[in-house]
């Protein structure tokens, strides 16, 4: 913990009373986010991501624990926290008829304490930055899914916050809109130095956006590292060498073992699966050694482990299985 941390949480917990007894949605998590970081909270539905986010944004009182957000105590100074943070909730129900993009953004800015003139000026800065320029007079109901999400993000940026929380920013968007939104999110940090904490249950999203990934499962943080380090720590890269002639497999195995330091070798009916620390570095020496021994594989692929593999190793459950569980509280 340092003085300048954007978020510092200690033993943050939240339990809910339900008909079948109390449910511990978040079980005492510690969290540190430095200024300018993009941190991803990754986990299946029901892992406690949204509950964590709602606590850190003052929408939900923690049952216990402490947190300092943007320099202010979450419980004692919620208004000071609110002034400094932006919050973009999960995609909501279709908007009411009669709501207009520009008006809603100005209303939000005014509730954040901007004067009418400042709010209007800010609208003319924020709208083009999120490719909403020219849509100010458009009804919310007429926006496409991608535009709606960019509008949601714009709402959270009207008061130029230092810290922005994004709850599942791209859920439900088509691949093109997702990639587009990722660019916008990256530019928030790269161009304006905004610190971002986002939740996602998309592995590729955490991988693409986050400097650091916190893996959440069952209300706890089970891993905290960079996407690359997490992958390296867990399983390493797998080089798959396919051979047309079955007899070559055994010779190829011993050649590969002597060529590079391997973690593990698995021989299947038609292929050799060699696990190494760095696939990109190991593939050339293996090929050279195979060639020297007169062996030529019919195909070669190098697979980096996905965050799904990471999640499986960390929790013993696949991310997809977990996603079928109960919805986030």
């Amino acid at each position: 913990m340092t003085e300048t941390d954007m978020i510092t949480a200690r033993s943050l917990s939240r339990s809910f009373k339900t008909k079948s007894g109390p449910v511990e949605a978040v079980r005492g998590i510690d969290l540190d986010v430095r200024p300018g970081e993009i941190v991803g909270l990754l986990g299946p539905n029901g892992a406690g991501k949204t509950t964590t986010l709602r606590m850190l944004t003052t929408l939900l009182m923690p049952s216990s624990g402490t947190a300092t957000v943007a320099g202010h105590d979450l419980v004692r100074e919620p208004r000071d926290v609110r002034r400094r943070i932006g919050y973009v909730s999960q995609v909501g129900a279709p908007p009411s008829a009669g709501t207009i993009v520009g008006e809603e953004l100005v209303t939000q800015a005014r509730l954040q304490g901007l004067s009418k003139a400042d709010a209007t000026t800010r609208l003319s800065e924020v709208a083009p930055r999120l490719s909403l320029g020219g849509l100010e007079r458009r009804a919310l109901l007429e926006l496409s899914g991608g535009q709606r999400r960019r509008f949601d993000i714009a709402l959270g940026l009207m008061h130029s916050p230092q810290l922005v929380f994004l709850d599942e920013p791209t859920t439900g968007l088509d691949p093109q809109s997702r990639a587009n939104l990722w660019d916008h999110i990256r530019s928030l940090r790269d161009d304006s130095g905004v610190t971002i904490l986002l939740t996602t249950h998309y592995l590729d999203e955490a991988d693409a956006l986050a400097d650091r990934v916190l893996v959440m499962d069952d209300g706890k943080i089970v891993a905290d590292d960079t996407p690359d380090a997490l992958k390296a720590r867990i399983s390493g890269d797998v080089i798959t060498l396919a051979f047309g002639v079955a007899g070559e497999l055994a010779r190829a195995e011993s050649v590969a073992r002597t060529a590079v330091p391997v973690r593990e070798v698995v021989v299947t009916d038609s292929a050799l699966l060699v696990t190494v620390d760095e696939g990109a570095v190991a593939v050339a020496p293996i090929l050279r050694a195979l060639d020297f021994a007169g062996l030529s594989p019919s195909s070669i692929t190098v697979n980096r482990p996905t965050l799904d593999d990471v999640f499986l190793t960390l929790t013993g459950r696949s991310l997809r299985e977990g996603a079928e569980g109960d919805s986030a509280a």
Binding site: L59, G92, Q108
Partner: peptide, 17 residues
């Protein structure tokens, strides 16, 4: 209830208003 579902209530609660 509709505003709650749209997220309007939450986003207004996150302001210092």
């Amino acid at each position: 209830i509709q505003e709650l579902r749209e997220g309007v209530i939450d986003r207004q609660r996150v302001t210092p208003a």
